[in-house]
């Protein structure tokens, strides 16, 4: 088996475990490259029938193209899509000017937990990867969150031999991470091999492209002339800048992501 085949087989195995084990399961879809690969893998795992709803946590600050693309693809593929906003937070005027981390916590973390409670999800599938940043590199494939969405990262249970955490008290939920073992280049190589449709914000226009997608006030495009997947792969092979360098919330504090994720951030 080749490298991408191994990654794919492992992800499919994880998706099938999650589907078997959790009565109420949903998959986060951020419109970005990783969760779009995840959607592709779910179709492979279940032979063209993605058997759980997709969830989009809409901060209302997303780059407008993302929303247009989301609605178009969902209609084309006939996806069951749950779009959720933290309406209370938004009504009270929450936004990045109140502080990036405060805003992330309210419009992403809290909105996500509202979805979990509203739909009684036992499992949430997310497209995070170990190579993105430090606290994600320490994650488990099946990672428990308490009823308050908290992650007890200093005392994670053992996880080995693909025997995942499937027993937990009612009210808690499990974050399932089928792409944990992939890296950024793997994702691009796979998108190329499988010819996966992708939003064009990733491809350079006027000397700029997005390497990681998020909310427009806190996400900066990088200087790039890469207009094709091959050009992107070549660019990534030669860069020494990290993938999330354009995500400004990460830079707020040395442990910003750890702090956000401890409270239930993706």
């Amino acid at each position: 088996m080749e490298h991408l085949d191994r990654l794919e087989a492992q992800s499919i195995f994880i998706l099938r475990e999650a589907y078997k084990k959790f009565g109420k399961l949903g998959m986060l879809w951020s419109i970005g490259k990783d969760s779009t690969v995840l959607l592709w893998l779910a179709n492979k795992a279940f032979f063209g029938h993605c058997p759980f709803p997709l969830i989009h946590v809409d901060t209302t600050y997303k780059i407008p193209d993302m929303i247009a693309y989301r609605d178009r693809l969902a209609a084309e593929m006939g996806l069951e899509l749950i779009v959720h906003r933290n309406e209370t937070g938004l009504a009270e005027g929450m936004g990045p000017e109140r502080g990036r981390l405060t805003c992330c916590k309210a419009l992403k973390t809290e909105a996500l937990q509202e979805v979990v409670l509203k739909y009684q999800f036992e499992g949430l599938i997310l497209g995070i990867r170990r190579d993105e940043e430090g606290s994600r590199s320490k994650e488990r494939v099946f990672s428990e969150r308490t009823k308050d969405a908290e992650w007890d990262y200093t005392n994670q249970p053992p996880e080995f031999w693909d025997q995942f955490k499937t027993d937990f008290p009612k009210g808690n939920h499990i974050r399932v991470h089928p792409l944990l073992h992939w890296n950024e280049l793997d994702i691009w190589a796979y998108i190329k091999r499988e010819n996966i449709p992708l939003i064009d914000l990733y491809f350079a226009k006027d000397g700029k492209r997005y390497r990681s997608l998020g909310c427009w006030p806190c996400t900066k495009p990088i200087a790039s002339n890469a207009t094709t997947i091959d050009a992107i792969i070549k660019e990534l092979e030669n860069t020494s800048v990290s993938e999330r360098a354009g995500r400004m919330q990460d830079q707020e504090d040395a442990y910003a992501m750890q702090k956000l994720r401890k409270d239930g951030y993706m």
Binding site: R130, S137, Y153, T154, H181, N183, A254, Q258
Partner: peptide
């Protein structure tokens, strides 16, 4: 570079496993 948690860096120990390429 690996001990990413604040607790790990403050105490100078590795608490949890990491994978890096």
């Amino acid at each position: 570079l690996l001990d990413a948690f604040e607790e790990e860096q403050k105490q100078g120990i590795t608490i949890d496993t990491t994978q890096i390429q």
